[in-house]
Design a protein around this nucleic acid. Structure first.
Lengths: 204, 204
DNA sequence: AGACCATGTGGACATTGCCCACATTATAAT
DNA sequence: ATTATAATGTGGGCAATGTCCACATGGTCT
């Protein structure tokens, strides 16, 4: 009946995955280490063998989120190798989708929950890699004379800010009231907002 | 010695103000109703006569934050009556400043902590007012042919997203590492990012 | 003066994060 | 193969917290 051994075997990953589920169900505030342990059928202290404290578990969850985005971006880089503009767009769409489909995970990643100055190296690396991939796309766009030449970091920051801000509004429902709640219409609006960003970035 | 009466007199406001202080010291997670009560020298249940639960207290705090921004915007509207471009810029600066000086309050307001769909009417009104004031500024800029004519909501959303995203990055230290930690340099970078937004908004 | 309602108090309970000592298993050294 | 050692899981315990309850206190209005 119970194929459960004393040692779980892969508890660390199981914790992260179940945490993502629980995050989605109950939000960041509702995620508790003890219930997490209960759900996985282990004692309330087992998680502490893999994470020093709750904060570290959350960091690992966030890092997993960034890793998923990175995986998506790598696929984009292959499929749209010489089209940086589409790459930028699609990676923005991915973030938007995450904000709509897994708002709590998105909030954990981009909501400033992890001051990133005090977080562990794993999360820091993933976050940096996330930025670096954007930098790469944008400098490619500059080289192809699609975007105006200039400080790459400036354009990167502009793109990140715009997408992140838009996604945050979307996930926190700050739009639902102004945009008649229609998801289709929201996507149209998001596209138009993205156009404004593009106009600011493109060569003229 | 103790000018303390049984009834505090203005506990509701005192709670909100002290909550803002405590927020700044300990972050959202570290804010507890009980310590709040302790700090104000009242019983651990007194707050419940003014707020149904912790969530409602946080909403009131966030609403207070929005009210402060609104007050600032009203002043700007008087001082820069016919200069919507400067109004937009300055109200953006105000948000940036809040993100740097009171990052936890900023996070509470813009970090999606309050899904705004399920929050009380007070916060909802303040948040909406905040958007409306931007709409006003931007339609003025369109009328003066400073910004390209078109859907006002689209431009409003673009401006909000950009500023909010930039502020979130700043407050969560996601820049500190890429921008050599120099505050002066960050402000310069922020200005450049803002220029990209303006290029997207302006008439050409 | 007395009734009523807002406000503040203390007690209680379940839950949680985290610490401790101990148990069980895997790994490696002899 | 046996045995030390590290990795992993278990239970107990503690202080803190959010929230519920009954009760106390003090204005307010008739």
């Amino acid at each position: 009946m119970q194929n459960k051994t004393y040692h779980h075997g892969d508890l660390r990953n199981a914790l992260i995955l179940e945490a993502i589920v629980m995050l989605h169900e109950k939000g960041i505030g509702g995620l508790s280490l003890r219930e997490l342990a209960r759900r996985l059928g282990v004692g309330h202290n087992a998680p502490y063998r893999h994470f020093k404290n709750k904060q570290q578990l959350l960091e690992a969850v966030a890092a997993t989120g960034f890793r998923r985005l990175k995986a998506h971006n790598i696929r984009l880089e292959l499929e749209l190798a010489d089209d940086p503009e589409s790459q930028l767009f699609e990676s923005g769409v991915a973030i938007l989708n995450m904000a709509m489909e897994q708002p709590e995970l998105f909030r954990l990643m981009f909501g400033g929950y992890l001051s990133l100055g005090k977080c562990g190296p794993e999360l820091k690396e993933e976050a940096h890699a996330s930025i670096e991939s954007l930098v790469k796309i944008i400098s490619l766009a500059q080289q192809q004379d699609i975007f105006a030449r200039g400080d790459v970091m400036r354009q990167t920051l502009a793109a990140m800010s715009m997408v992140q801000g838009l996604a945050m509004m979307a996930s926190s429902g700050m739009l639902r009231d102004n945009v008649t709640g229609d998801e289709q219409q929201f996507k149209r609006l998001a596209l138009q907002v993205y156009d404004i960003l593009l106009m600011g970035l493109k060569k003229r």
